[in-house]
Design a protein around this nucleic acid. Structure first.
Length: 834
RNA sequence: GCGGGCGUGGCGAAAUUGGUAGACGCACGGCACUCAAAAUGCCGCGGCUUCGGUCAUGUCGGUUCGAGUCCGACCGCCCGCACCA
């Protein structure tokens, strides 16, 4: 008699067996082909959430599948353990960040283990431990020695809530990415990593990342923002000069003004003697920087009264403005305006009544007078431009740059949007920057034999600011260079540094150095990296930079860390609202008589399906679900229905469905008896399923693999007992093993198979069996389906045509008439054109 | 504004190079088993229909023997960047 599958017992049993046997231990020295499967490691926030479950289930299926295909798979797990939430917990609950973080890690480790992931736990790491961050300090010093780290006083993005500096990448719509607070500008001395040194190769490398989503590559391309053009100086009427950058040097004879940013030195100089200018500059600074404010902000300018001489004609003087739309931190902070061919310049010119001269023909107009309020930025030949007349835009650009360089007043230049990466954070819970400041010697690196620079334990969080700076003794040290009194750097590294190399440390983690080159090179690059698209720029760009920097330093072979990238969708859930608008959690809502109500019978409004969030109260904690249904049902649900790159809506009905499937497979296994005999149709289906599921897993189309497995299970259920049916069930168990591994092990043992299914080879399939002997072909009249025919594969055209014409529905439809034309696609269809 | 993606039943979705639209799952309805329920199984499940058909893949048009798929225009939603010279 069939028993129900008992997930509690099975999960624990097999998780213990895998751990005892070291089943998922990755061997550095294995002769098998190596495969590195990695999911973005979690921040130890306290408990795992559904997003983690989905992410790690996907990676796990791939890792287990590749193992079965005979590869040596590295599939590690660790903790991105530094960061602000631990300090917030310290401030709110008075618990040390380390205590809080390590307790969270312990909880989450148990939760991940209860999902039965095929992880090599022997390689577990946490970035907050000195054996990790000490090695990170060593790498930082290597970059420092190579001149890729520098310190500069700069205006920084200051988050007034987190009381720390943010990188440009971490400011979203003028707000801190984590706190959401409006970011202020402050002047601070900060450490920077020279990511801009790598701008060209980071951009170029994107072209070869053909296993990355196009979307992510485009986002990085835009972020790096390469612009080629001409940088040159205008001579001003007061004898000074102003430098500008343009990507359209071809339009130089259409220029009608010069403008500089409010923060430009020239603006400051003008303001010294002109109070109106000073007032204008102050107004510009007061203006908001959010997207909405910029959208509506008027293009405004202040005429300085100065003029600039056109580089090709000293008698041609252009007015010089201070303008609110010119950015100081892009290009040179100065531009020249060509209103006819740039929308923003046109708006500005119309407002201030400046000349608008056409210099590129749109194919219809070529006279100098430019009408209308829509600039023309398309291609065309140059007009009204002296020696450029008749050239195409690109040729004219080259011609102007050549003249500027020959005459010595400008040069062809590339300008990048990408800025250097500011890594200083005024926080405690991060990697200490291994630098000592000495009045005599300056910034001195901590000698490597004195690493790690360990965080002091005795710190307080009762006042805002950096506890390291306040610590009574920690920062007071002797200068490693001169021995005099000196002070430690009290800033810590941006936590994105921690996640920029953890995948290397997973591959190799010796005690005495960051990684062993030969071992790391054997595993890297990561073959398949899986995580959320929210890291498309920040983490993925930094990790690419860090890897390239190590490559340039000769420390590693690879240049790109991640060959394949997959960005998975979010886990969502319905939202519910009470009559008073209050959000209700799923367990406050029940269905009565087909209507949603609260426990008190109040009507409930069903809202949109949205990302799980505390504010909408639609978060479902995986733990209790796991407890009642077991790991396999949860894993199966995560893989079902939605394509992995799209959002997945969690539902109670969905997990019930997954649970039913797990039991269906279990019942099939229990139905195996000693039956004999063949079942050719089922065997053909078996081969097809093996091939199809493998292809779907390889392309990460888990939802399609799931659908094929449902069909296979349905076919087996309908089949009569036979030896082939038994074989089909044995095959099924291996096919589902990457997805529902606990049930698969239980079934494998119940079927009397040797060893673990986790170690079993992926089933073979016979390519010949994939081609059916009989095919169903469509019979169409004028492209509309009228009938179908079942014929032998390879049936000749004439015979197909004859059979199609004799089909009952065709005879009736044609009513004796002969078709005008017959199209026959062998093994596919016959289309009769009436 | 620029760049990208997506529109298919009540819902999540399938659909090699253009070749039988809606596989598979969820929800729902009916039936069987049961004292009853759960579990399980069977049947049905895009609309209309005179049961022959017919209309259906966001809208309109085009190419084709044949279009969810290709082309053009438009509408809607989502994501990223955003005064980048």
């Amino acid at each position: 008699m069939a028993e129900r599958f008992n997930p509690k017992a099975a999960d624990a049993r097999w998780q213990r067996v895998w751990a005892e046997q070291g089943t998922f231990h990755a061997s550095d020295t294995s002769p098998k082909p190596k495969s590195y499967v990695l999911e973005m490691f979690p921040y130890p926030s306290g408990r795992i959430h559904m997003g983690h479950v989905r992410n790690y289930t996907m990676g796990d299926v791939l890792a287990r599948y590749r193992r079965m295909k005979g590869m040596e798979v590295l599939h590690p797990m660790g903790w991105d353990a530094f960061g602000m939430p631990a300090e917030n917990a310290a401030m709110e609950k008075g618990v040390h960040p380390g205590t809080w973080t390590r307790a969270n890690i312990a909880t989450m480790r148990d939760q991940l283990k209860s999902l039965g992931f095929a992880l090599d736990w022997s390689r577990e790491l946490a970035t907050c431990e000195p054996d990790y961050y000490g090695q990170e300090q060593a790498l930082f010093l290597d970059l420092f020695a190579a001149g890729l780290v520098y310190r500069k006083e700069s205006a920084v993005n200051w988050d007034p809530v987190d009381m720390t500096v943010l990188a440009n990448e971490q400011v979203i719509d003028g707000r801190g990415w984590r706190s959401g607070a409006l970011v202020e500008k402050r002047k601070l001395s900060q450490w920077f990593l020279k990511i801009t040194d790598f701008a060209e190769e980071l951009l170029d490398g994107l072209k070869r990342l053909d296993q990355w989503p196009e979307k992510v590559r485009l986002m990085q391309e835009n972020w790096i923002g390469k612009s080629q053009g001409l940088q040159f100086r205008f001579r001003l009427s007061d004898g000074d000069e102003v430098e500008v950058f343009t990507t359209r040097p071809d339009t130089i004879f259409g220029s009608s003004f010069v403008a500089v940013a409010a923060d430009h030195p020239l603006a400051a100089k003008v303001a010294e003697t002109n109070p109106a200018a000073a007032a204008f500059i102050a107004e510009c600074r007061a203006g908001g920087t959010t997207a909405a404010e910029l959208e509506t902000a008027e293009k405004r300018g202040f005429d300085t009264g100065l003029t600039a001489a056109h580089p090709f004609d000293p008698d041609w003087q252009l007015p010089v403005f201070i303008a609110n739309f010119v950015l100081m931190d892009y290009g040179t902070g100065g531009v020249f305006g060509v209103p006819a061919h740039d929308q923003r310049d046109l708006d500005f010119a119309r407002k201030y009544g400046l000349t608008v001269t056409r210099v590129v023909t749109d194919g219809e107009h070529s006279d100098p007078a430019f009408e209308g309020d829509e600039a023309y930025s398309g291609p065309g030949k140059l007009v009204n431009s002296r020696f450029l007349d008749g050239m195409e835009v690109e040729a004219a650009k080259r011609a102007v740059i050549a003249r500027a360089e020959a005459e010595g007043w400008g040069k062809g230049t590339t300008v990048w949007r990408l800025r250097d990466w500011g890594v200083s954070r005024q926080r405690y819970w991060g990697t200490p920057i291994p630098i000592i400041h000495c009045d005599a010697c300056g910034a001195v690196p901590v000698p490597k034999d004195q690493l790690p620079v360990v965080l002091p334990e005795d710190v307080s969080f009762d006042v805002p600011g950096n506890p390291l700076d306040r610590h009574p003794s920690w920062k007071h040290v002797d200068c490693p260079s001169c021995g005099g009194k000196a002070q430690r750097e009290t800033d810590t590294l941006d936590t994105f540094v921690d996640s920029s190399w953890y995948f290397i440390r997973f591959a190799s983690q010796p005690d005495d150095k960051p990684f062993d080159r030969a071992v790391a090179d054997a595993w890297l690059p990561v073959g398949q990296y899986i995580g959320g698209v929210e890291h498309a720029i920040l983490h993925l760009l930094y990790a690419r930079f860090w890897t390239r920097a190590l490559n340039r330093l000769g420390k590693i072979d690879v240049k790109e860390p991640f060959t394949g990238l997959f960005t998975q969708g979010m886990v969502t859930h319905e939202t519910y609202q009470a009559p008073d608008g209050r959000w209700l959690s799923p367990d406050e809502v029940e269905t009565r008589g087909g209507k949603l109500v609260t426990a008190d019978g109040e009507p409930v409004t069903l809202g949109r399906v949205e990302k799980m969030s505390k504010s909408k109260k639609n978060v479902v904690d995986p733990a209790p679900i796991l407890d009642s249904y077991g790991a396999d049902a949860v894993r199966w649900f995560m893989l079902s229905d939605s394509p992995p790159e799209r959002d997945l809506a969690w539902s109670e009905a969905g997990i019930e469905g997954a649970w039913r499937f797990v039991n269906r497979v279990w019942r099939l296994v229990q139905s195996v008896d000693a039956a004999e005999g063949a079942d050719a149709a089922l065997t053909a289906r078996r081969h097809k399923t093996v091939a199809g599921v493998a292809a779907d897993i390889e392309s990460l189309s888990f939802n399609k693999a799931v659908a094929k497995l449902y069909e296979f299970v349905g076919a087996i259920e309908k089949a009569q007992p036979s030896a082939d049916r038994t074989e089909a069930i044995r095959t099924l168990v291996r096919l589902v093993a990457p997805m529902i591994p606990h049930l698969a092990e239980e079934a494998w043992a119940a079927l009397g198979q040797q060893g673990l299914v986790a170690n079993a080879p992926w089933p073979e399939f016979d390519a010949k069996a994939l081609v059916a002997d009989e095919v169903t072909i469509a019979v169409q009249i004028n492209g509309k389906l009228r009938d179908t025919l079942t014929v032998a594969r390879g049936e000749p055209r004439e015979s197909l045509e004859a059979k199609a014409l004799a089909a009952p529905n065709v005879v009736r439809q044609l009513n004796g008439a002969a078709p005008k034309k017959v199209i026959v696609v062998p093994d596919r269809l016959v289309n009769l054109v009436a």
